[in-house]
Amino acid sequence: MAARRNPRPPPIWSAVLFAAVLVAAVLLAAGCTSGGRSEGGGQAATPTSAPAAPAGPLKVQLVTTAKVPPGGLSAGRAARRAAPGLERFLDRYLRAAYVNAAGGEAGWDGLLGLFDTPVRAAARKQLNALSLGEAAPTVTAVRPGRATAKAVVLYGAKRPEAATVRVAFDGTADTAQGSGPVHLRSVLQLLATGDSWRIAAFDSRTGSAK
């Protein structure tokens, strides 16, 4: 009876109330931080208002198939032999185009060195479609996310000769104004150069629009 006359909120409701107030406090704090910075000179929220996810290592997930000459290696074996070198090359590409490009201090020579000479001038003119491009100086860091590639390798008598690779890279770029996604979707036509590869042609898209 006493309980009926003097009801107390059950413990569950206390917990809900506490949680609601806590959420409100957090939301308030977030709103104040954002609004304050906005009013103070038109600056957007810093990464502190959108906490940075832990930086993950760049790891290209590569699927390789191969075309082989009659009497040569089996297609499966050729693909397995070609894969490590391709993976290293794509890793170099994505580091040069995104991870190491942040800040814009590294320049683009490293990236352009991955292109075959007859296509290098075109690549230099189209860096925005191949890398962070003109956004690089404003980016403080690029945190790699998903990096996948599918390759069809033309295998010769003893080694890979060429490959077509579809590359997809998603990452997060941090700037003083905030963090946002960066994307690369490319088809690269590669020429084997003995110990590595060169990009002989490309069809590429970048930016935040997928």
Binding site: A30, G31, T33, S34, R37, S38, Q43, A44, A45, T46, P47, S49, A50, D116, P118, V119, A122, A123, Q126, N128, A129, L130, L132, G133, A135, T138, V139, A173, T175, Q177, G178, S179, G180, P181, V182, A200, A201, F202, D203, S204, R205, T206, G207, S208, A209
Partner: peptide, 23 residues
């Protein structure tokens, strides 16, 4: 930018670009 960051939505770091080239 502030709107995006404060609600965790996409903030545009790089506009969309497309390009291609043959030798």
């Amino acid at each position: 930018t502030a709107r995006a960051a404060s609600v965790g939505q996409a903030f545009t770091v790089q506009r969309a670009h497309a390009g291609s080239a043959t030798p």
